[in-house]
Structure formats: structure tokens, C-alpha cells
Design a binder for these strands. Structure first.
Length: 476
RNA sequence: GCCCCUUUCGUCUAGUGGCCCAGGACACAGCCCUUUCAAGGCUGCGACAGGGGUUCGAAUCCCCUAAGGGGCGCCA
């Protein structure tokens, strides 16, 4: 009962944070926040070839954007650092040495070429592809002699002849038979440790209590269990969530379109919506609820309710959900998010510089948006005066009646009080003069002013455009 | 080839032996609201992978098959 929850997200910086990784991070983070535990961020950069600083930077940036703050890790450090695997080499060596000492690991001098040849032969003969154990029982003197002679070697774990059982929080009982695994490498000939070994050493060293990760690691757990045992350390609790799939039901990847969290940020999605969507992809509370705030998620998240079956990433549903969160925002909160988007796309638009107009604009278009970026198109649709977009629209403003209407309306607008009640009355009066009402009254006005048959509330548009601009467009 | 995991509407899912001829959400269609488009409301469409058992009764338990995924690396 005394054990504190310590969970971690351990990405390798070989690319951007993708939605699958983000969900894994989220589950860990949620669990830590729910239980009052610690969330640790560890960078698994032992693959020097593929790891880059840009990827690390991007990872941290996207994690922050999502609001997935870490208690220990890069930038904040902590009592169990360093949090970059590339800086922990001494620790791995120490643990490997321990395994070599107690006999649960041994040096292996087989070359990569030899192993490849053996693997191929095994494949042809339909035998298991495992290491055949050539160096498993070399004499102590021979080992020392070959090492002294400078012969390169790797370190392998001596896999015990026994079955292993994992009691996974989401999968239940998973069992591996002894013969399904050959002695595997934990230290490369370069001295660099291998993933499965680093994970165990780090998780043990950082006192991780729960390992929450994706299903692709499920079978790795077999090896990791063996290493824990060899080290004499009690393994943490495991929870393996399933994978996120693309629309074609294969593992989500770049060719499925946007998969990086950074891209979603750029596309105008809200972090809160992203969190909501990701949380519900492979987890639910057991009821019909769809919309959650981050705070609410922190309250009710449980590892046990993570689902076993893989899920397809549904972009349409994410967009809908983003719209839900967007519309739930107060204008005060929405405005600072929309403002930069608008100003970036319309740097020369003077009305955006006026705080009062800007506020009215945001209020007007909020209901039309599903993403922050939608603001641009909606705003442009009426901010810029334009010709009728199609024949239907052109026909709407070319009738005699509509021309009478515009003339009458211009007159009314010129003198009416420029507030909502004022234009409403003016429109009504002009309609009476021209003999138009209902759709016949409003549609021509809309088209005359904006060029299109649809868009936000007409009165709201007048409000944003202002008397002068409206008159100019009416008289044009 | 071997090992492991998974399988309810197109998609995300509820469902842990009777409340289920299966509920919700997205998408789609229709209607309502409305000066338009949205938003919102209502309605509709639509699934227990297949086959065997167990049981009075099975989406739910067992077995087999199929399909999908993951792993079997000196990648992570």
C-alpha cells in the first residue's frame, strides 16, 4: 500500500510525436494524475544512428502542447536521472556486469555473418529462428583468452528453461512456453546495450510501478520478465493497450495522412479535444459519455478499462469533437486562439486591428468552426467584398425587385441607428418599399454584401462590417 | 514457419448468462427550427466473424476455423 505510482513515457526520438505515442503518454499521465503519482519522461536514444536533437525538441514541444507535463525528465530532471538513455551507459554496463557475474548472461563470439547464415538455414529447414547456443557453455579460460585476444563479442542472456506468466492489467493472463525464446543479446559488440535490456534497467532504476505501453511490446515482456528475474528484481505491473490503426486497418502511419501531434496543432485542433479523442480511442468509462474535459478525465481514468482490441483513427470524429470543445469555449478564451490565426492569414485586414470588431467577429463565426483554422475561410467569406460566387447568386441580385430593394435599403441604412434593432428595422422597411419579404428579402441582401448564398448570421455580418462598408457594397 | 494478442453497426464503443429480435456517439439520409449555411432537436439506416458445444436460456462460458495485428534483430 505504501508504493507510490510511478509511470513513464519512453519515446525514441527518431521522428515526431505521433498520435499513437501521444495516447500512450496520455494513459500514463492520466494514471499518474489520478493516483497522485509521478509521470516520468525518458528519452530512449540508444539508437545513435536514428536519434536526432530535432526529434527531441519536437517531442517536448508536442507534449507541452498537449499539456502532458512530466514530473521527472528532460528540462526538469529528478532524483533518478539522467533521463536520456544515451547518458546512462554506465548504469547498463553495471547491471550487465552483474548478470555476467551471476551466470545469467554470457559472452558470445559468433559473428553477425555466422548468425545470419544460421538464421537463413533454419528458415529453409523450417526450424525455429532462435540463437542455437554455440557460445552458451564455453569454458571460462577460453572466454578469457578470446576476450584478451581482442575478439569482439556480445553479451547474451541465458534463457532459463521455464515458462513465464504475465498478469497484464488489460490482457489478463498471458503465458509463454520456455522453448519459444532463444538466448538473446543485451549488449552489442560495441558495448551499447539493447532496448529490452535498457528498458528493464531503467524501469527498475527509476522505480517504475506500472508500465503502460502499446501492444507491440507485449511479446517483449517475455524477455523483460527474464531479465527482471536474472537481476533479482520484482517486475512492475504491466498494462498493454492495443494499437491505433489507419482507415485501412493497418497500423497508423504517415501514408494515412496527418499522424503527428504537431500537425494537428498546426491544423487548428485544440489540445483539450485531442486529449478527449485520444482518451476515448481505446478507453471508456463504461457509459455513453463522449465529451470530457482534461480535469474530468483525470478523475475517472482507470487502467482496467483500456480496451484490448485495436481501434481505427477516425478523423471525422476528431473534427466533430474539436467543434464541440471549440463551441464550449467562452469568447474570452476563444479570441486569443483565433486572433493569431486570422492575423497571420489576413495581415492587411484593418478590421482585425480593432478589438471591438474582432470580438464581434469571433462571436459571429464561433458556431461555424470545427477547427481554429476554419476561422480564416469563414471570415474571408464576408470580410472581403466579392462578386456573386455562382449563377444562382448572380440571379439573386439582378432582378428589378432586388435593385429597388438595394436602393431603398441604402437609404434606410444611411440614416438608421447603427445597432441591431436599427438594421433590422431598416431591412424591414426597405423590404416593404420593394415588396420583398422572407427569403426574397434576405437572400439578395446577403448576396449583394458577401457574394455568397450562405454564411453567418446576416445581422452579425452587418455589425462587423460597419455602416460605411455596407453602404459601399450596397451602392456598388 | 513458430509464438502472442484481437474480433459487436462503415468507424469509436456499451454490454461480464436472462433487463439485448443488442444501447450511445461519429459519418450518412430525412424532417423540424431558421433569411442562408452551420449549430441544435427529432427520426431513420446499420453489427454480435463463421462453425460446433455447455445451458431452460449465450454477444457474454468452452473448443475449432477464419481474418487482422504484433513479435521471433548487434531497431525502439
Amino acid at each position: 500500500m505504501s508504493q507510490q505510482v510511478r509511470v513513464r513515457f519512453a519515446p525514441s526520438p527518431t521522428g515526431y510525436l505521433h498520435v499513437g505515442g501521444a495516447r500512450t503518454a496520455l494513459f500514463n499521465w492520466l494514471y499518474a494524475r489520478k493516483t497522485g503519482g509521478k509521470f516520468i519522461l525518458r528519452i530512449e536514444d540508444t539508437d545513435v544512428e536514428r536519434s536526432t536533437q530535432e526529434a527531441v525538441d519536437g517531442l517536448l514541444r508536442d507534449m507541452k502542447w498537449l499539456g502532458l507535463t512530466w514530473d521527472e525528465g528532460p528540462e526538469v530532471d529528478g532524483p533518478h536521472g539522467p533521463y536520456f538513455q544515451s547518458q546512462r551507459l554506465e548504469i547498463y554496463k553495471k547491471y550487465a556486469e552483474k548478470l555476467l557475474q551471476n551466470g545469467s548472461a554470457y559472452p558470445c563470439f559468433c559473428s553477425e555473418e555466422e548468425l545470419e547464415a544460421k538464421r537463413q538455414k533454419a528458415e529453409e529447414e523450417h526450424r525455429s529462428l532462435h540463437y542455437d547456443g554455440t557460445c552458451r557453455n564455453l569454458g571460462k579460460e577460453e572466454v578469457e583468452k578470446r576476450i584478451a585476444a581482442g575478439e569482439p563479442y556480445v553479451v547474451r542472456v541465458r534463457v532459463p528453461d521455464k515458462d513465464y506468466v504475465l498478469n497484464d492489467l488489460v490482457r489478463g493472463r498471458v503465458e509463454w512456453k520456455s522453448e519459444t525464446l532463444g538466448d538473446f543479446i543485451i549488449l552489442r559488440s560495441s558495448g551499447m546495450p539493447v532496448y529490452n535490456f535498457c528498458v528493464v534497467v531503467d524501469d527498475a532504476d527509476m522505480q517504475i510501478s506500472h508500465v503502460v505501453r502499446a501492444e507491440e511490446h507485449l511479446t517483449n515482456t517475455h524477455r523483460q520478465l527474464i531479465i527482471y528475474e536474472a537481476l533479482g528484481i520484482t517486475p512492475p505491473t504491466f498494462a498493454h493497450a492495443s494499437l491505433i490503426l489507419g482507415e485501412d486497418k493497418t497500423k497508423l502511419s504517415k501514408r494515412h495522412g496527418a499522424t503527428s501531434v504537431g500537425q494537428y496543432a498546426l491544423d487548428g485542433f485544440l489540445p483539450e479535444a485531442m486529449i478527449n479523442f485520444l482518451a476515448l480511442l481505446g478507453w471508456n468509462e463504461g457509459n455513453d459519455r463522449e465529451i470530457y474535459s482534461v480535469e474530468e478525465l483525470k478523475e475517472c481514468f482507470t487502467l482496467e478499462r483500456i480496451s484490448k482490441s485495436p481501434g481505427v483513427f477516425d478523423h471525422a470524429k476528431l473534427t466533430w469533437m474539436n467543434g464541440q470543445h471549440l463551441r464550449a469555449l467562452s469568447v474570452e478564451n476563444l479570441l486569443p486562439m483565433v486572433e493569431p490565426v486570422l492575423k497571420k492569414e489576413m495581415p492587411d485586414e484593418p478590421r482585425l486591428q480593432n478589438p471591438e470588431i474582432l470580438r464581434k467577429l469571433v462571436e459571429l463565426i464561433q458556431i461555424k468552426m470545427n477547427k481554429l483554422n476554419d476561422a480564416v475561410e469563414v471570415a474571408k467569406s464576408f470580410l472581403n467584398a466579392s462578386q456573386p460566387e455562382n449563377e444562382e447568386a448572380a440571379a439573386m441580385i439582378s432582378t428589378d425587385k432586388s435593385k429597388d430593394l438595394f436602393a431603398a435599403l441604402a437609404e434606410e441604412f444611411a440614416s438608421c441607428e447603427w445597432v441591431r434593432e436599427g438594421y433590422n428595422a431598416a431591412i424591414k422597411a426597405a423590404g416593404k418599399t420593394a415588396g420583398a419579404k422572407g427569403k426574397e428579402l434576405f437572400m439578395p441582401i446577403r448576396v449583394k454584401i458577401t457574394g455568397t448564398c450562405h454564411g453567418p448570421d446576416l445581422v452579425g455580418i452587418l455589425d462587423v462590417l460597419g455602416r460605411e462598408e455596407v453602404l459601399k457594397r450596397l451602392r456598388n
